[in-house]
Design a protein around this nucleic acid. Structure first.
Length: 604
RNA sequence: GGGCUUGUAGCCUAGUCUGGAAGGGCGUAAGACUCCUAAUCUUAAGAUCGAGGGUUCAAAUCCCUCCAAGUCCGCCA
């Protein structure tokens, strides 16, 4: 609806300018005034024209005002100083808006463009920790946003099976006799499943401690510990490093099927744990792409040879790409002196492959990868391939410093999730002693996960985060209050008797809307926000940022809560109109949360 | 040393690309449940937009200098 309104206002302005014989600027700026009392749309066109026309902005505004005609969707247009402010006619606008909001509200028209989006791609040498979570949450939310904005999106997790880190894990298992206990990891999974279905045993949170030690049994956690031990060993036995190098060489050469199997199993085991964690956060990748294949199928060599052919490489002890001509001082090493490939080279082959799969390649990367990906992009340009668009994010650090799988210093995502759900459960139990254990668990899950995802996606990615439990897991005014607004709407609709809770469908026709309904201020605030949703989707997708969605859904929930508090719905004279408004607000909140991968509880 | 990012009320943050009316939230103070769930709502106080200079009718936004924090500059990934 707002798209329509905007165009309407633009047409009115253009006609006025035409009548005045003023030049029409290509890009007439329309913005939302800071305060709804100043109108619904505003333009600063008079400022834009002032210089060219050599007139004061005030005079331009008054001459436009004398010539402007507006359609009936607007109530009036006013000059406030040099600004020109449009006011919507809410009596007609509201009806049209409510009618236009369907279950898939916010979904924009399909664009004929495919995006290959790579995110998370954490090394399979341990569990995901809260440093990785930003990548995963931004990536997944972006996928949801871009899909809703009409793109076809394919998400990929790039699996690093060839690096030194995996070789170290294999080294630990083969040469140091370290092992992972699959029985224990199975038990861990079984325990989780039991805890969910067997409520009678779950009398207290007494077994909190054993829960935590259970987490150590989760398979990716076991691998993380193994990796940590190998690191300590190698650090004090530098001479053994060569053995790790030999493992890398052997795996890369595909010399032994047995060895391949060990590598693959280690990676797969860890990945199993990582996938469980991601699924718990509502994150599912379309594809897992193993980097090893690019070495095995000769693509890495092809890329290297292609770069040699460009004449920008030099070969001394190692083969490297000189990018100084392109403004990058640092050269990119393409091949180790022992002939094996490096991460960046394999990444290059991977990016080349991705660029053949879609119209746009999109990467989510920590800002520490900036130089590396710039080099890769440059190399791709040399090869006449598309270079990726990259969303960079800054780090999440602990108050005591940065995290490291290698040093075993980190908070795992599993730990964070457990804690979040625990805290949520505490709150739910405080408020709802009428619910059964299953319901409480379900709601706690939704709230806990919501708190985490919201905490990450509300911030713009280039903001550095120092992780503090209480900030990350606040339930006051955080995501929970948004979910609460949704639950309230559902409850209200359920009570009216015309709402099918299982299908989430309200059975009231638009012609039931009372004739004398003209929205009051609280209703107008809510209507305005509902109407804005598609614009927010469009603009956020345009800049590939998800944090505007987080801000938006909070404003929306806040407007709903305000409305809920101040206006009676059931039994009032304009019940049908208000019920429809509640229902459309519900849909909009739900769809906004969906973009952030947060579920909208029916009750809480 | 060089590159990149960040600096907006006690705290967290949007706005910076494309200059035009400093927007949220937490916390604080006062108030609101015999009425659809108070994880809510109302009202108030709180900002030399890191510092300094420049461009402009107009600067949080553009340019220059400086300060502080983070990060990169590996035959690691």
């Amino acid at each position: 609806m707002y798209f329509e309104i905007k165009n309407n206002a633009l047409d009115s302005l253009k006609n006025a300018l035409k009548n005045l014989n003023y030049e029409i600027p290509e890009d007439i700026k329309l913005e939302f005034p800071p305060n709804p009392k100043m109108g619904d749309l505003a333009t600063t066109i008079s400022f834009q024209l002032a210089k060219k026309l050599k007139m004061s902005p005030m005079d331009i505004t008054s001459s436009i005002m004398e010539n402007i005609e507006i359609s009936d969707i607007f109530e009036k247009v006013e000059a406030k100083g040099p600004y020109i402010n449009f006011f919507i006619n809410y009596k007609t606008f509201s009806r049209r808006l409510l009618e236009s909001v369907s279950d898939d509200y916010g979904k924009l028209t399909t664009k004929d463009e495919k995006i290959v989006l790579e995110h998370t791609s954490a090394n399979p040498n341990g569990p995901l920790h809260i440093g990785h979570i930003r990548n995963a949450i931004i990536g997944d939310s972006l996928k949801r946003l871009l899909k809703t904005a009409g793109y076809e999106v394919n998400t990929q997790y790039y699996v690093n099976d060839m690096g030194r880190q995996i070789a170290m894990i294999v080294f630990g298992m083969e040469k140091l006799g370290l092992s992972i206990d699959e029985e224990l990891s199975k038990k861990y999974i079984d325990n989780i499943a039991n805890n969910l279905s067997d409520n009678s045993l779950n009398e207290n949170n007494l077994d909190n401690k054993s829960d935590k030690s259970n987490l150590d049994n989760k398979i990716d956690h076991q691998i993380g510990q193994l990796y940590f031990k190998v690191n300590e060993y190698i650090n004090s036995n530098e001479d053994k490093k060569i053995e790790v190098d030999n493992l890398i060489k052997a795996y890369e050469g595909g010399l032994s099927e047995d060895l391949d199997e060990i590598f693959e199993k280690a990676v797969n085991d860890c990945l199993t744990g990582v996938k469980q964690t991601l699924n718990n956060l509502n994150i599912i990748h379309d594809d897992f792409v193993w980097e090893g294949q690019f070495v095995r199928n000769g693509e890495v060599d092809k890329v290297v040879n292609g770069l040699i052919a460009t004449g920008h490489t030099k070969e001394e002890e190692v083969l490297c790409l000189d990018l100084e001509d392109f403004g990058i001082e640092k050269e990119l090493v393409l091949r180790r002196s022992d002939g094996t490939s490096l991460y960046s080279t394999r990444d290059l082959a991977y990016h080349k492959w991705k660029s053949e799969q879609g119209d746009l390649v999109l990467d989510i990367l920590g800002s520490d990868h900036k130089l590396a990906i710039e080099q890769v992009s440059m190399a791709l340009n040399l090869l006449n391939e598309k270079s990726p668009e990259v969303i960079f994010y800054e780090f999440i650090t602990l108050p005591e410093g940065s995290m490291s799988t290698r040093r075993g210093v980190f908070i795992s995502v599993d730990e964070l999730l457990d804690e979040a759900i625990d805290r949520a459960k505490n709150e739910v139990q405080k408020r709802r002693n009428d619910l059964n254990e299953d319901e409480i668990n379900k709601i706690s899950n939704e709230i806990g996960i919501g708190a985490i995802r919201y905490f990450i996606s509300r911030l713009s990615p280039e903001k550095h985060i120092t992780f503090k439990w209480d900030e990350a897991l606040s339930f006051e005014r955080g995501c929970a209050s948004i979910q609460y607004a949704h639950a309230r709407a559902c409850k209200l609709l359920e009570k009216c008797g015309n709402f099918d809770l299982t299908k989430e469908k309200l059975n009231i026709d638009f012609d039931k809307i009372e004739d004398d309904w003209t929205p009051n201020e609280v209703e107008m605030d809510l209507i305005r926000l509902i109407a804005k949703f598609p614009i927010v989707v469009d603009e956020s997708a345009d800049i590939m940022r998800v944090h505007p969605i987080a801000q938006y859904v909070q404003d929306l929930a806040s407007a709903f809560n305000k409305f809920y508090k101040s206006e009676q719905v059931l039994g009032c004279e304009i019940e049908s109109a208000r019920l429809l408004l509640v229902d459309k607000a519900r849909i909009t909140i739900k769809n906004s949360l969906e973009l952030l991968g947060i579920s909208a509880p029916l009750k809480m």
